Amino acid sequence: MTRIRDGVSRPRARDRRGVRDTALAALVPVAACSVALAGLTAWTGAGRAGSPARIRVTQGKVLLPSAGVPETAAFFDIANEGGSSDTLLRVTARGVPDGVALSRHRMTGGNGAYRSPIASVAVAAGESLAMSPTGVDLTVPVPEGGWSAGDLVTFTLEFRRGGTVESVAVVVRPGSASLP
């Protein structure tokens, strides 16, 4: 309702309050939706949206260690065929003492190389990781009695979201064509 004074229509104070109250009432659901959208965006950006991680482990190889060398390297191809990222946290092997360690191959300025232990390795959704002698690999202690070329070693790979995956690796001679 308006008052007319001097031929000009003016809204009453009560009408202005109603508009303000209506605007404030509309603001609450808009703010709630904005907060929900921001949360979903963060959830998606963190790799937690989409289908779960589906891990496939193939092409396992263990290098035949040289005589008297206490450890060797192992490699796998890991594919994440799911819609969420995952992380390889730990690897064990049957019959292997002292545990298997994740490591990354590093180069020095003088073309020397060394292994650097790592705590975990990420595998993004829809991506794969090909372990290699020049990247991420596994440092494996050699069991008493050692291995021969062609032996099979069973590994269990533990992932944050994908659970555990058991895979078999074949022992191969260093420099063989079957290396990654």
Rank of each mutant, 00 (worst) to 15 (best):
R3S: 09
D6W: 03
V8K: 11
P11G: 09
R14P: 03
D21N: 14
D21R: 15
D21G: 07
A23C: 08
A26S: 12
L27Q: 11
V28W: 10
V28A: 13
V28G: 08
V30I: 14
S34A: 14
A38V: 14
L40Q: 14
L40F: 14
T41Q: 12
T41D: 15
A42G: 12
A42S: 10
T44L: 04
T44M: 04
A46M: 10
G50R: 10
G50W: 10
R54G: 00
R54Y: 05
R56E: 14
R56M: 07
V57F: 05
V57M: 06
V57E: 03
T58Q: 09
T58K: 02
K61M: 08
V62A: 01
L63M: 10
L64H: 09
S66P: 00
A67K: 07
G68C: 07
E71Q: 13
D77Y: 10
A79V: 13
E81Q: 15
D86K: 02
T87E: 13
V91A: 05
G95E: 05
V96R: 04
V96T: 12
A101D: 11
S103T: 11
T108M: 07
G109C: 06
N111F: 11
G112Q: 11
A113S: 12
A113Q: 13
A113V: 11
R115C: 01
S116F: 06
P117A: 12
S120M: 03
S120C: 01
V121W: 09
A124W: 07
G126M: 00
E127A: 15
S128T: 04
M131L: 10
S132R: 11
S132D: 13
D137E: 13
L138G: 01
L138F: 00
V140E: 05
P141Q: 02
E144A: 15
E144Y: 00
G145P: 06
G146I: 05
S148P: 02
A149N: 06
G150H: 05
D151M: 06
L152Q: 11
T154S: 10
L157Y: 07
E158D: 13
E158N: 10
F159S: 01
F159E: 00
G163Q: 05
T164P: 02
V165C: 04
E166I: 11
S167P: 03
S167R: 09
V168T: 15
V170H: 02
G175E: 03
G175F: 02
S176I: 07
S176R: 04
S178M: 08
S178L: 12
